[in-house]
Deep mutational scan, measured.
Amino acid sequence: TTYKLILNGKTLKGETTTEAVDAETAERVFKEYAKKNGVDGEWTYDDATKTFTSTE
């Protein structure tokens, strides 16, 4: 399943996707990605669109 991440950081904005077996796995991948890029925001998830959003 393809999951999408929308980053709305103070210094980094953008989108990326990952293939994962479930939302929990995708969330771990995306949170590590955000951390590596210095984004520490509030997380939301929309199951209908398989989209995570992190907003600082």
Rank of each mutant, 00 (worst) to 15 (best):
T1K: 10
T1S: 11
T1Q: 12
T2I: 14
T2P: 04
Y3M: 02
Y3L: 02
Y3N: 01
K4C: 08
L5Y: 04
L5D: 02
L5W: 05
I6N: 03
I6S: 03
I6Y: 06
I6F: 06
L7I: 13
L7M: 10
L7S: 02
N8C: 14
N8F: 12
N8V: 13
N8S: 09
G9M: 07
G9Q: 04
G9L: 07
K10M: 13
K10I: 14
L12H: 14
L12S: 08
L12C: 15
K13P: 04
G14M: 15
G14D: 12
E15K: 07
E15F: 14
E15N: 07
T16S: 09
T16G: 04
T16D: 03
T16L: 15
T16C: 15
T17M: 09
T17C: 12
T18F: 14
T18G: 03
T18H: 08
E19Q: 14
E19R: 13
E19H: 13
E19W: 15
A20D: 02
A20F: 06
D22N: 10
D22C: 06
D22G: 03
D22F: 03
D22Q: 03
A23L: 11
A23E: 07
A23F: 14
T25V: 08
T25N: 07
A26M: 01
E27N: 05
E27P: 00
R28H: 08
V29L: 11
V29G: 03
F30P: 00
F30R: 00
K31N: 04
E32M: 09
E32S: 07
E32I: 09
K35E: 09
K36L: 14
G38D: 06
V39Q: 04
V39M: 09
V39G: 03
D40H: 13
D40P: 05
D40C: 13
G41Y: 06
W43L: 08
W43K: 00
T44R: 08
T44S: 13
D46E: 06
D46V: 05
D47V: 10
A48W: 07
A48K: 12
T49N: 07
T49F: 04
T49V: 05
T49S: 11
K50C: 05
K50I: 01
K50F: 08
T51G: 01
T51L: 03
E56F: 09
E56V: 08
E56H: 06
